[in-house]
């Protein structure tokens, strides 16, 4: 390539944005994590790892971390395989019906979070909600969907999943639009089945996107559930829907324990660092064995 000179102005805006609005604040947060600060009175001097220790003195934080991992795992198929299948189905039969389905499937993204939460609260109302009325028809006793520690996390993940599917469906649609239809027609003429087309033409085309979306799902799933938790359950009942992100929010913005909230934030980043290192070690050893 002859164009290598002059890449700086192209990357500068990104690097500036990340440095000023993410990395800078993150370093500041790391500093706060070893201080006591309630936002308004001057921060204390260094308190060492007190804030970190305080997170582990009670089971809440560890439990929230476990539940975050659990919901991230549960959301993975909703970020990848499910929107992929729906996108391929819509792609296979373009037309009026596809346009309608595509619009309907996008709806969860459009509705304001507070309206989604209200709708679900009414539908899932254990005393008179539509969901339990339907169950009643089949003779199933009422379920306290969001109020029962046994079901609350599941329901919350399902509500979040709808949004994730809708989001990633849009991204897959864009990816699929890059496939050359002439190639598909040629394959059809040669008698290729639908499955073969999916396997040999669509598959390779969406592979990279799927890897990226899977990675993003792992990194962002916890943040996705945050909105649902804050508008629907506030971490309850009995803490079963709590996540580390909601914990950081509660510590920072309800209890104004900025030090502990910062420490929790640092721990989340550290956890990802450990995960990333483990991943690259696995990859390297695999490559070495080949």
């Amino acid at each position: 390539m002859t164009q290598k000179a002059g890449w700086r102005p192209y990357l500068a805006p990104l690097i500036l944005a990340l440095a000023v609005w993410v990395y800078g604040p993150a370093v500041f947060t790391a500093v706060l994590s070893v201080m006591k600060w309630n936002l308004t009175t001057p921060p204390s001097g260094l308190v060492g790892l007190d804030n970190y220790a305080s997170l582990f003195r009670h089971p809440e934080f560890a439990r929230a971390a476990g539940q975050t991992i659990l919901s991230a795992l549960a959301l993975l198929p909703f970020a990848t395989i499910i929107p992929l299948v729906l996108a391929v189905m819509l792609w296979q039969r373009p037309g009026r019906a596809s346009v309608v389905y595509r619009a309907l499937l996008f709806v969860p993204v459009v509705v304001a979070p507070v309206a989604v939460a209200t709708a679900w609260k009414f539908l899932l109302n254990p005393l008179q909600g539509l969901m339990n009325r339907i169950l009643e028809v089949f003779g199933i006793p009422p379920v306290n969907w969001l109020g029962d520690p046994g079901t609350a996390l599941l329901v919350l993940v399902a509500i979040t999943a709808a949004k994730v599917v809708a989001f990633n469906l849009v991204l897959y649609t864009a990816t699929l639009s890059g496939i050359d239809r002439a190639l598909v027609s040629a394959a059809e003429l040669e008698g290729a089945t639908r499955w073969e087309i999916s396997r040999f033409i669509v598959g390779p085309h969406v592979a990279r996107t799927t890897v990226v979306l899977a990675l993003l799902s792992v990194v962002l799933a916890g943040q996705w559930t945050f909105t649902s938790v804050s508008v629907l359950t506030q971490g309850g009942p009995d803490g079963v829907t709590d996540s580390v992100y909601y914990r950081i929010y509660a510590l920072g913005f309800q209890f104004f324990d900025t030090g502990a909230a910062s420490a929790a934030g640092v721990l989340v980043l550290l956890a990802f660092a450990v995960l990333a290192t483990a991943w690259s070690v696995v990859r390297r050893s695999r490559r070495a064995s080949h």
Binding site: V22, L32, Q223, G265, V268
Partner: peptide
């Protein structure tokens, strides 16, 4: 991966 809730104050 940086939790947004943790950096919003800075």
């Amino acid at each position: 991966a940086v939790p947004p809730q943790a950096i919003i104050i800075p």
